[in-house]
Design a protein around this nucleic acid. Structure first.
Length: 783
RNA sequence: GCCCAGGUGGUGGAAUUGGUAGACACGCAGGACUUAAAAUCCUGUGGCUGAAUAGGCCGUGCGGGUUCGAUUCCCGCCCUGGGCACCA
């Protein structure tokens, strides 16, 4: 009947390098919170697990021939031992690994439900293809447009991939942010990533052909200013419309674009490139003939892959028009288009726009869209930056996608596209053993070579069928892991309804800012889907995480990212061995503001070590233990209880520790303390330095663990200061402070302030024009 | 190029409904203890000036602005970190 509190950290990928000093930053922070919440009487869940599918294990297997499962098991053991040495209060009974078939059974189950609901589909999309290795590459493996393994050229190649329709949830992923308590910057990043925009789709007739070209624009009001059209090099109509005399040039340009990575395409943004296709469209509003260009700054993945270029009112179009000497027609007055495009939408009036001339931009957007609709030339449309999620990988070390392809079912119509689901009773579809972990020459996963696995019976018609050989990305398992913790051994469901109803959603989730747009968004999507199909009880609500905070990265000593190649990696085991687990924990919390990146500094660890040793000595006769210590210490301990408690809630761990250092220094300065101070200090210290606090607690004669004691309350009356020092300024410059009673009035303050010699010096012979009094803060004489 | 953060002493940082800039810690300097060193303890420590723990001036990335008063708010830049899919 205790109130539940579910706090969560992002579970680690158990890499071969072992625990990084960055991992414990987040784990310690929420361990402090978990311990405080337990002391406050909550039923706390603080679980840990391993996100163990992934590229590094697979690459290691390719290099050494050691099965990824073996590597993974070994790495998990190392991580477990390292995590345990830091004294985190994780629930070790609930440990999960995404590579466990009993776990990924449910990852596969979720995929099947998505397929059933039309959210999983196959389509052709471009992937990175290494021309010499003849395999598909992850973005991360493409470095400066070259293959990371062989250094050879990489190009884009179309490949059939499973996709998840996250775009269907785009609006809800934005709107529901109102229901949750995330750091504002996290919400902003997500909203910008989803990138909802409203505009119009407009059809342009191709000159001398039956086809038409549809563009998406957020500025339909500038339609009269469209002087050319740009299609992306991947546009499906391009081949058809290109004129014979431009064909060679266009083909060459498309080939070049294929070689460029997306990063390159964006880095070369300053100098725009493009070629004329030789074809024209007709502007529906004025019948003007408009040339069609091809340029790689237009992406097939956004909108329709084609834009109407309005150089007068879009800077990129402007640059392009200047470079290729294309006409620039002003249709919104208010700017100076001789220098730059005029893109302000809040002011400006239409010119050169026929019947729409004279309208404001916002009026024109509505009127022109309406006009397009009545003419059958286009309609209002919403677009998102967010794209559907590519869900398949041509890799071995991932969850097999539980789908079977059956020609027979396709021909009979039993399956529209030939794909048939593996029945739930056959899950988990286990990853078979292979001899070779390399993808095949034609870019298929290594699973494709295992004939007796690939060839199977169709679950629907019993005929010959072939299994899908792609596997899922590493995000598949990490999207829902927080639900499995609630019921980790359940083999009837991903988690039982009662357990879900009790524990879900997560109350506080902390993770890296780098996961804001991928993991965090993907997992919100998956959770919403599970909620929609009733796999999660209604009472849990439609958001997985009520609160989301983020920690900054820990960098190497020089402020650079820690990496093997830079040789600036700090091994947590060595720090723990030399300084102890509590020092390690407290240092990581003390080193700087929790949400910001910060360089590691071994010198700083020394200060924390001294702090903890001073505490030890206080409790070992270093100061006198008296019946009742000074009032000033009593005030300070209560102020510290408040400060530490508040700071844990706002994640200002560094100032909480600083407050405890101040308390320590005060006790040493006084040379004495009493039982009340001694007890309370250990209680508030215990979440930060659990080993030390527990040891001292036991030495004081307590039998029960300090972690089971209640969190101390502070006394409101005791923390109030009776006297304050009021700042006296003359013309805004600090001149003196005066000791005054808390509730002093302006008249009294003026009197005391004017009596000060220092102040009088500055006021002598001057006329006081104004006096500003801020109660409890300052008094300022303006002369 | 786009989105999100950040820039304060020798170093990590503290302080924001606008109100004493530099808490706490590291480092450094001086001292105590020691045969000596380490550890520990004490004192000092933003810069310039000054005999001064008297006073003065300067000082929170840069340039402007608002204000009695700006690290904090506004405008324009520069630099660093995280993310990226040129988002029309």
């Amino acid at each position: 009947d205790k109130e539940k509190f579910y706090c969560l950290i992002e579970f680690p990928y158990p890499s071969g390098e072992g625990l990084h000093v960055g991992h414990p930053r987040s784990y310690t922070a929420l361990d402090i919170l978990a311990r405080k919440r337990r002391m406050q009487g909550y039923n706390v869940l603080y679980p840990i697990g391993f996100d163990a599918f992934g590229l590094p294990s697979e690459n290691y297997a390719i290099k050494t021939g050691i099965h990824p499962a073996i590597t993974t098991e070994k790495n998990i053991k190392t991580f477990t031992q390292q995590l345990k040495s830091l004294g985190f209060s994780f629930d070790w009974e609930r440990v999960i690994s995404t590579t466990d078939p009993q776990y990924y059974k449910w990852t596969q189950w979720i995929f099947l439900r998505m397929y059933e609901h039309g959210l999983a589909y196959k389509t052709k999309i471009p992937i990175n293809w290494c021309l010499s290795c003849k395999i598909g590459l992850a973005n991360e493996e493409v470095v400066n447009g070259k293959c990371e393994r062989c250094g050879g050229p990489v190009e884009k190649r179309e490949k059939e991939q499973w996709m998840l329709k996250i775009t269907k949830y785009a609006d809800r992923l934005i709107d529901d942010l109102e229901k949750v308590d995330y750091l504002e910057k996290i919400k902003t990043q997500q909203i910008n990533w989803i990138g909802r925009s409203e505009g119009a789709e407009i059809r342009f007739e191709l000159e001398g052909g039956d086809d038409n070209l549809t563009v998406y624009t957020t500025r339909p009001d500038t339609l009269f200013g469209a002087t050319f059209m740009v299609v992306s090099p991947e546009h499906p109509l391009l081949e058809k419309i290109v004129s014979s005399d431009q064909a060679r040039e266009v083909t060459e340009y498309v080939k070049q674009a294929k070689r460029k990575s997306d990063l390159e395409r964006s880095e070369l943004a300053k100098e725009k490139t493009g070629v004329f296709s030789g074809a024209y469209v007709v502007n529906p509003v004025n019948g003007r003939k408009i040339p069609i260009w091809v340029a790689d700054y237009v992406l097939m993945s956004y909108g329709t892959g084609a834009i109407m270029a309005v150089p007068a009112h879009d800077q990129r179009d402007y640059d392009f028009a200047k470079k290729y000497d294309l006409p620039i027609i002003e249709v919104v007055a208010g700017g100076d288009i001789s220098e730059n495009a005029y893109a302000d939408i809040d002011q400006g009036v239409l010119v050169n726009s026929g019947q729409f001339t004279g309208l404001t931009v916002s009026q024109a957007i509505i009127k022109i869209t309406q006009w397009l609709e009545t003419q059958g030339l286009g309609q209002a449309a919403v677009n998102y930056k967010l794209r559907d999620w590519v869900f398949s990988r041509q890799r071995y070390w991932g969850e097999p996608i539980p789908m079977v392809y059956c020609d027979n079912c396709k021909s009979t119509g039993a399956s529209k596209d030939g794909w048939v689901m593996v029945p739930e009773k056959d899950l988990p579809l286990q990853l078979p053993k292979v001899k070779n972990y390399e993808p095949t020459d034609d870019g298929q996963s290594p699973l494709a070579l295992i004939e007796d696995w690939v060839n199977t019976k169709c679950p629907k018609c019993g005929g010959k069928a072939r299994r899908e050989t792609d596997t899922m990305p590493n995000w598949a398992g990490s999207n829902w892991y927080f639900l499995r913790y609630l019921d980790p051994r359940n083999n009837k469901a991903l988690a039982g309804a009662e357990k879900l109803a009790y524990w879900a959603p997560v109350d506080w989730y902390n993770g890296g800012m780098e996961h804001t747009t991928l993991h965090l968004l993907y997992s919100r999507f998956v959770y919403k889907f599970l909620y929609d199909i009733g796999a999660i009880p209604q009472s849990c609500g439609s958001e997985p995480y009520l609160k989301r905070t983020s920690h900054g990265m820990i960098l190497g000593a020089g402020g650079e990212k820690m990496s093997k190649s830079r040789g600036n990696v700090v091994n947590p085991d060595e720090v723990i061995k030399e300084f102890g687990a509590d020092t390690f924990r407290v240092y990581e919390m003390f080193m700087g503001p929790f949400d910001q990146a910060i360089p590691w500094d071994t010198n700083g660890v020394v200060g924390v070590k001294r702090f903890l040793e001073r505490i030890w000595s206080i409790y070992h006769g270093g100061v006198e233990s008296v019946d009742q210590a000074d009032d000033s210490l009593l005030t300070l301990i209560h102020q510290t209880i408040k400060k530490v408690g508040d700071d844990i809630e706002t994640q200002d761990y560094n100032t909480a520790i600083s407050a405890m250092m101040i308390l320590t220094n005060k006790i040493i300065e006084l040379g004495r303390f009493d039982q009340e101070v001694a007890h309370n200090f250990l209680l508030i210290l215990s979440p930060f330095a659990p080993h030390l606090a527990e040891e001292l607690w036991q030495e004081m004669g307590f039998k029960k663990s300090i972690s089971l004691e209640p969190w101390p309350e502070y006394d409101q009356d005791l923390i109030k200061e009776q006297e304050i020092s009021l700042v006296v300024q003359v013309n805004g410059k600090f001149r003196d402070t005066i000791k005054v009673e808390v509730g002093i009035t302006q008249q009294q303050a003026e009197k005391i302030a004017l009596a000060s010699d220092k102040v009088a010096n500055y006021l002598e012979g001057k006329k006081i024009k104004n006096i500003i009094f801020v109660p409890g803060r300052l008094i300022n004489f303006v002369i």
